[in-house]
Computed example of a mutant assay.
Amino acid sequence: MSVKLVRFKSNNQDQWGVLKGNRINFIKGDIFGARQILEEHIALDKVKLLAPCTPSKGVCIGLNYFDHAREMNLELPEEPLMFLKPSSSLNYPGGNIEYPAISHNLHYEGELAIVIKKEAYHVSAEAAFDYVLGYTCANDVTARDLQLKDGQWTRGKSFNTFMPIGPWIETDIDPNSLNIKLYVNDEVRQSSNTNNLIFGVAQLVAYVTQVMTLYPGDVILTGTPSGVGPMQVGDKVAVEIEGIGRLENTIVSGK
């Protein structure tokens, strides 16, 4: 059964719920295990949405769309290109993305994110979906000038606010053929489909877990399609994925 898991703040407390239309039914129990959907509910527009999970890390995959590789005139990778975003970069639906004062070329990268359900290490591709809770939208915000200057990606990808995810976790959807779009000020800048992924969800879970343990709530950002480009202070940027939802954030001046 398709379920949209929502994390939100109500009465100054972080809560979990299930989105049903324009209301959220509260959850009793553990979203990563046994849970009970209660009759008690609250209107969606009465709560502040939080990041739908609190990952210990964001594992990101570079150059993972055929159209993006063609756009960059790059050869297809033989295996996934992996890097990390720290938990301190986590951001939430509606949150501000801070444009660092030391950067002058801030880019968007709309992506499908995999949310991990249970501890995973040395997982096979055949068993990968047993470890997936669901999927959400993500923006792999990148200080492109710093990324290129450094020659490795940690600084350019890791500023606070650089990993917005949300608005919720869709638990039952086929991730292999989803339309994905990114908008800047309601203008489409990226438009593709996850059937353009070079390495699919099962391959990525297997590949990452050969290297590191993934914990419940960790996310894998699966890569961005063609059309990456700059954002400016004041821009509103939105990642929209078919069957999941729309993640919106605003660019503000940072320190």
Rank of each mutant, 00 (worst) to 15 (best):
V3E: 12
K4Y: 02
L5F: 07
F8H: 03
F8I: 08
K9Y: 02
Q15S: 15
Q15N: 15
G17A: 10
G17R: 06
N22G: 08
N25F: 02
N25I: 00
F32L: 04
A34W: 00
A34N: 13
R35A: 14
R35M: 15
Q36F: 14
E39S: 10
V47A: 14
L49K: 02
L49E: 06
T54A: 11
P55G: 07
K57Q: 13
G58Q: 08
C60N: 01
L63W: 12
H68T: 02
M72C: 12
N73Q: 10
L74T: 12
E75K: 14
E78D: 09
P80D: 04
L81K: 13
M82F: 01
L84K: 03
Y92A: 14
Y92C: 08
P93H: 04
Y99V: 01
P100E: 06
S103T: 12
N105Y: 09
L106N: 06
L106T: 09
L106D: 01
E109P: 10
L112D: 12
A113Y: 05
K118A: 08
A120F: 05
A120V: 09
A125Y: 01
A125N: 01
E126M: 01
D130V: 09
D130E: 15
Y131M: 12
G134Y: 01
Y135D: 03
C137W: 04
A138I: 05
D140L: 05
V141S: 07
L146E: 03
Q147P: 03
L148I: 12
K149C: 08
K149R: 15
T154P: 00
K157I: 01
S158V: 07
G166H: 07
P167L: 07
W168S: 01
W168C: 01
E170N: 00
T171P: 00
D172W: 00
D174Y: 11
S177A: 15
L178W: 12
V184N: 00
V184I: 13
E187Y: 00
V188R: 00
S191A: 11
S191I: 00
S192N: 13
T194M: 11
T194W: 07
T194C: 11
N195D: 15
L197R: 02
L197Q: 08
I198C: 07
F199D: 08
A202G: 10
A202I: 12
Q203V: 03
V205F: 04
Y207H: 13
Y207Q: 07
V208F: 03
T209N: 05
Q210F: 08
V211P: 00
M212A: 10
L214A: 10
L214H: 10
Y215D: 06
P216G: 07
P216A: 10
D218W: 04
L221V: 06
L221I: 10
G223M: 04
T224M: 02
T224A: 08
T224E: 03
S226R: 12
G227I: 11
G229N: 09
G229D: 06
G229I: 02
G229H: 03
G229S: 10
M231W: 06
V233P: 01
D235Y: 08
K236N: 12
A238G: 10
A238Q: 14
A238F: 09
I241A: 00
G245F: 10
R246H: 14
R246L: 14
R246E: 14
I251T: 03
G254N: 12
G254K: 11
